[in-house]
Computed example of a mutant assay.
Amino acid sequence: MAEDKRIILTAEPDHSGDIEITPAVLEVVLGIAAQQVDGVYAMRGSLANNISSLLGKDSHGHGVKITTQDDGQLLADVYVYLRYGVSVPKVALAMQKSLQEQLLFMTDLQLAQVNVHVEGLVPEKESKPDPDALFKDQDDPDTDEDDAGEAAHD
């Protein structure tokens, strides 16, 4: 959950007003960027996010927490599930780089830290065998030879 403290973007000296962004918006930006990194299976979500997702309201910010330090630096904690078989350090480094670049591009804000928390690895789902096909009669060359052998014995 994001802090309620709004982040004010720096503007040109001749600006006509302030630009404020809530940390929740930054979490959504980082959540979408994290999901696009190769090797990421899913983001960690809370029960409320899972229920919202079932109702058709997808929350891209779940799995990301933004904190603002007293000196104004932004820290991001990202909680992810990775695909089994990927190099965890490579995916984590790619995620750190991607999230920093995306936030800088979209908001001109810099992240002091991106802490990647790997919550688990998810193996690929294997297709289940069709039970009807397991015992289905097939034209198998081995069965033809057996039939021929039985005919020879008669």
Results as ranks from 00 to 15, higher is better:
residue 1 M to Y: 13
residue 2 A to Y: 03
residue 3 E to Y: 02
residue 4 D to M: 00
residue 7 I to G: 00
residue 8 I to N: 03
residue 8 I to T: 13
residue 8 I to M: 09
residue 9 L to D: 05
residue 9 L to K: 15
residue 12 E to Q: 12
residue 15 H to A: 15
residue 16 S to I: 14
residue 16 S to W: 08
residue 19 I to T: 14
residue 19 I to V: 14
residue 19 I to E: 10
residue 20 E to C: 07
residue 23 P to N: 00
residue 24 A to C: 11
residue 24 A to Y: 01
residue 24 A to F: 02
residue 25 V to F: 02
residue 26 L to S: 00
residue 27 E to S: 02
residue 27 E to G: 00
residue 28 V to F: 03
residue 29 V to T: 13
residue 32 I to F: 06
residue 33 A to L: 05
residue 34 A to I: 08
residue 34 A to Y: 00
residue 35 Q to G: 14
residue 35 Q to P: 04
residue 36 Q to Y: 10
residue 36 Q to K: 03
residue 36 Q to N: 12
residue 37 V to T: 07
residue 37 V to W: 04
residue 38 D to H: 06
residue 38 D to A: 13
residue 39 G to C: 04
residue 41 Y to E: 15
residue 44 R to C: 12
residue 45 G to P: 02
residue 45 G to T: 12
residue 46 S to T: 15
residue 46 S to W: 06
residue 46 S to R: 14
residue 48 A to E: 15
residue 48 A to M: 08
residue 49 N to R: 06
residue 51 I to C: 07
residue 51 I to N: 11
residue 53 S to V: 01
residue 53 S to G: 06
residue 56 G to F: 01
residue 58 D to S: 05
residue 58 D to M: 08
residue 59 S to E: 02
residue 59 S to Q: 11
residue 60 H to R: 03
residue 61 G to D: 08
residue 66 I to G: 02
residue 70 D to V: 09
residue 71 D to H: 07
residue 72 G to F: 13
residue 72 G to C: 06
residue 72 G to A: 11
residue 73 Q to I: 04
residue 73 Q to C: 04
residue 75 L to N: 12
residue 79 Y to E: 11
residue 80 V to K: 03
residue 82 L to F: 06
residue 82 L to Q: 06
residue 86 V to H: 12
residue 86 V to G: 05
residue 86 V to K: 01
residue 88 V to L: 13
residue 89 P to G: 09
residue 89 P to Q: 09
residue 89 P to A: 03
residue 92 A to M: 03
residue 94 A to V: 01
residue 95 M to K: 09
residue 96 Q to E: 08
residue 97 K to D: 12
residue 98 S to F: 00
residue 99 L to D: 01
residue 99 L to C: 01
residue 100 Q to M: 04
residue 101 E to Y: 09
residue 103 L to A: 05
residue 103 L to P: 00
residue 104 L to V: 08
residue 105 F to S: 09
residue 105 F to H: 14
residue 106 M to N: 06
residue 107 T to V: 10
residue 107 T to Q: 15
residue 108 D to V: 06
residue 108 D to W: 01
residue 109 L to Y: 00
residue 112 A to E: 06
residue 112 A to G: 00
residue 113 Q to R: 10
residue 113 Q to G: 04
residue 114 V to P: 11
residue 114 V to R: 09
residue 115 N to G: 03
residue 116 V to Q: 07
residue 116 V to R: 04
residue 117 H to R: 01
residue 119 E to N: 13
residue 119 E to R: 09
residue 120 G to I: 01
residue 121 L to D: 05
residue 121 L to K: 07
residue 122 V to N: 12
residue 122 V to R: 12
residue 126 E to P: 01
residue 130 D to R: 00
residue 130 D to P: 00
residue 132 D to E: 12
residue 133 A to E: 13
residue 135 F to V: 08
residue 137 D to F: 08
residue 138 Q to W: 03
residue 140 D to Q: 05
residue 141 P to N: 04
residue 141 P to E: 03
residue 142 D to V: 07
residue 144 D to T: 02
residue 145 E to G: 04
residue 146 D to T: 09
residue 148 A to K: 11
residue 148 A to Q: 08
residue 148 A to I: 04
residue 149 G to S: 10
residue 151 A to P: 08
residue 151 A to R: 12
residue 153 H to S: 14
residue 153 H to L: 11
residue 153 H to E: 15
